[in-house]
Computed example of a mutant assay.
Amino acid sequence: MAQTVFAPWDDPQQKPLIQFVGVTKRFGDFVAIDNLTQDIYEKEFFALLGPSGCGKTTMMRMLAGFETPTEGSILLSGQDIAGVPPNKRAVNMMFQSYALFPHLTVWDNIAFGLRRSDMPKDAIAARVEEMLKLTRLSKFGRRKPHQISGGQRQRVALARSLAKAPKLLLLDEPLGALDKKLRQDTQFELMDIQETTGTTFVIVTHDQEEAMTVASRVAVMDEGRIIQVATPEKIYEVPNSVYVADFIGDVNILEGTAKPNGTESYAIDWGNGAPVTATSVRPFTDGQKAFLAIRPEKIAISAECPADAVNAVQGKVLDIAYLGNLSTYHVELPTGQVIKAQSANTRRVSRRAYTWEDPVWLSWSATAGVLLVS
């Protein structure tokens, strides 16, 4: 049986859980959020991604109720939440520092918010046990935060945040304090927990790998604006600008002028020998400035020029980044431009085909890159 694809944003019948409508936030003369309109849907794992100061944390703080918009409105389930204080919103926030109470046990940390509500004692106990089970912490309920690992503390903070069953959980750089291996493991745990609970998660991160791993959609931000919102695959494969292409993963940007040479096909004169061929559904006029973004893994490296190559350039190996499963070759062209090509290390390093200063050919297909206006 085919699994249905989760894409409520493509369904006009679906009503968003969160709506930012023309939201601007100023701090004095500084515009942190600039006339932003964006929908987020129920059960989404939505990632806000961007460099420091791009406005992603301000967006989250407005959702939590710690900041109010200067202009525009934020709706939760169709209701304007401007005047609703943080403790009255069906929203919870998990901070990077976890903010656990050191003198309380794991069990009591999770129960803390529930005890402040009018939930009966036996219902609190059942809910805490449910949260411990969900986050695989059942054995650690009687321990204090200092008696468990960083990854376990992170899960306690998550269990406490989810205990009151919020409609929306905000995660501010939640895995920033964990080492790389633990962070990767925890990303998958977060995804499982989000799927199990059906809670809408909005995560703020500057770690592109994290956003691409966990999110149903990624919003790439810059200077208070969302530049592109799409699924991780589309953000990576079909960026809408040089900024997004450059921000997500490794990329080569070839700058030149376009000349139509067939249906959705263009010759790009880029000042490095013969023009290169690229396809684009977006039309370009003769002589229009264009940027061709090509990922290193889409570029083949070889000792000889492939006979059937649509695009091929020769250069010499300037640098090699060995990444275990992959090697990235930095190849310098006669003009001085450097292009990165990546290949899988299926053989041992001692048998590597190319080394520093070797002459090599780089080749790629007409559809390997994305042609961008800016």
Rank of each mutant, 00 (worst) to 15 (best):
A274H: 12
L76D: 03
E233N: 14
W107S: 14
T335N: 11
T186I: 04
M191I: 13
D10P: 04
R153W: 03
K121W: 14
D10A: 12
P102C: 08
K259Q: 12
S73Y: 13
G198D: 05
I301A: 04
K15H: 11
T257L: 15
P166N: 08
G53N: 04
I268A: 01
G176R: 07
D246C: 04
I320C: 02
A123N: 02
C305V: 11
T328G: 14
T37Q: 02
I40G: 08
L169E: 05
F6Y: 10
V156Y: 07
A165H: 14
S327T: 03
V370M: 08
I18A: 01
V242T: 02
A344E: 15
A177Y: 11
Y322V: 00
S265Q: 13
S97F: 01
A7E: 12
D286S: 02
P239A: 08
N345V: 01
P69V: 03
I40N: 05
A368I: 00
P86R: 08
W107A: 13
S52F: 05
G113R: 14
C54N: 01
S241E: 08
I253F: 10
Q208M: 02
G72F: 00
Q187C: 08
T135V: 07
C54F: 07
R116S: 13
Y354N: 04
P16W: 09
R348T: 10
E129H: 10
T213K: 00
I110T: 00
Y243R: 09
F27N: 02
D172V: 01
Y266Q: 02
